[in-house]
């Protein structure tokens, strides 16, 4: 839910081009903080976590169009710089699988990496506050997904004028011809109905998203607790309570 499963050609060109430019810029900034040796050593891990995210994305909960992302747990294990590259790789492979458009890869990377990066920092902060794994992970995951969903809604809203243009195009096809003929007699109410309705979109996305955030929060808590039982070193937790 949190990243855009939009097809190609729906978002305006300036928006998805900006998405690519933004992704390049953010990637360049984040990679200044990674040492080359460290990067080389962690590339196989990045590949594994990206693969786990792809496998998670393949488990679709159809009624609410939601799939688990595993972005927060991947962010915690990879760190903020590598999770960005991992989300880029995930989005490229998912787009090649028909799961979202190719033109929206840049925007999807920015939105999905918000989950990983926000999740990483929130988890570190909340761990220091609570000193307990369950609340720290659940709140971090929930808020990270909430932020990325807000970012997704923001991106979709930015294209509103373009959707209006697509809806009201005239004389460019058989169906548009009927619409333009009827347009002369439309009442105010009908005109309003034919306009882009972002409120309705948000009213559907947020409740469905909420179910997804809670579900992913619970699953992430259970996964992290399992990892903590078997390989606590992977979580790199400081000052663990006795």
């Amino acid at each position: 839910m949190s990243h855009i499963h939009l097809p190609d050609g729906v978002l305006p060109v300036w928006l998805w081009v900006s998405g690519y430019l933004g992704a390049i810029l953010v990637g360049a900034i984040l990679f200044r903080f990674v040492k080359e040796e460290n990067l080389s050593r962690r590339l196989p891990l990045l590949g594994m976590m990206a693969a786990a995210m792809i496998l998670g994305a393949s488990v679709e909960i159809v009624p609410i169009a939601y799939h688990i992302n595993l972005t927060v747990i991947s962010g915690i294990l990879l760190g903020p710089s590598l999770i960005f590259l991992a989300t880029l790789v995930v989005n490229v492979i998912l787009a090649l699988f028909g799961h979202g458009g190719i033109t929206v890869i840049g925007l999807n990377t920015l939105i999905l990496s918000i989950e990983g990066i926000v999740g990483y920092f929130l988890f570190r902060f909340l761990w220091r506050v609570f000193k307990r794994l369950t609340p720290a992970i659940f709140i971090a995951t929930f808020l990270a997904l909430f932020s990325s969903t807000l970012a997704m809604i923001g991106v979709v809203s930015l294209g509103a004028s373009h959707y209006e243009e697509l809806i009201h195009q005239e004389g460019k096809g058989i169906f548009e011809f009927h619409l333009s003929k009827e347009k002369e007699n439309v009442s105010g109410e009908a005109q309003e109905k034919s306009e882009v309705n972002l409120k309705r979109f948000i009213a559907i996305v947020l409740p469905l998203g909420f179910i997804g955030w809670v579900l992913e929060g619970v699953i992430t808590v259970l996964i992290v607790r399992y990892i903590h039982r078997l390989r606590p070193d992977l979580l790199k937790l400081e000052r663990e309570p006795a």
């Binding site: 169009a65 979202g100 809806i167 619409l179 034919s194 882009v196 309705n197 979109f201």
Partner: peptide, 27 residues
Amino acid sequence: YPLIFAVLFIFISGFQIGFILLIFLKV
């Protein structure tokens, strides 16, 4: 498979048949 998500996008349009068909065909 991507149509599952395109359905969500219908709600933006206010159920305009031309727009919905356009989106579905793009998908």
